[in-house]
Amino acid sequence: MKITFKLNGENVSIEVESYKRLIDMLREDFELTGTKEGCSIGECGACTVLMDGKAVNSCLVLAAQIDGAEILTIEGVNQGNNLSDLQRNFLTHGAVQCGFCTPGMILSSLALLNENPNPTVEEIEESIAGNLCRCTGYKQIIEAVKATAEMSNQKLRNQSA
């Protein structure tokens, strides 16, 4: 079947088999391999992408289901050739070790920051509750998200000053 959707800001159309999962379409047909597959059953969050602004597990969504939707993958998070503040803060706060969980973590926390520019630590924890990290113990990740929120609030204050 043919589906049309927005992928990282661009309108695209593609013929997909009914049984193709969103993650397979992204990795195989669009060669967007930043989206990782860990558990394949909704438990680890490595495959997280944003669908209409909301975090979803691309291993548990069929490609057919996203017809008409807007999908954001880690490849769409960069600002041009530059890393976004969130990505840079992940690096500087030691939130990236092996890096396997990182794309999913960034998308889950991005979904939060887009809706809630001033999250509490509990809200950050809740937003990444579906993302497993075997390396960092989450503390550095939470700090990176917190730092990003503070940076963007600072920028807003500077603009209005």
Binding site: G42, M51, N57, G130
Partner: peptide, 9 residues
């Protein structure tokens, strides 16, 4: 219920 990702779908 489950995780944010699963609650969203």
């Amino acid at each position: 219920v489950a995780s944010p990702q699963l609650r969203n779908v």
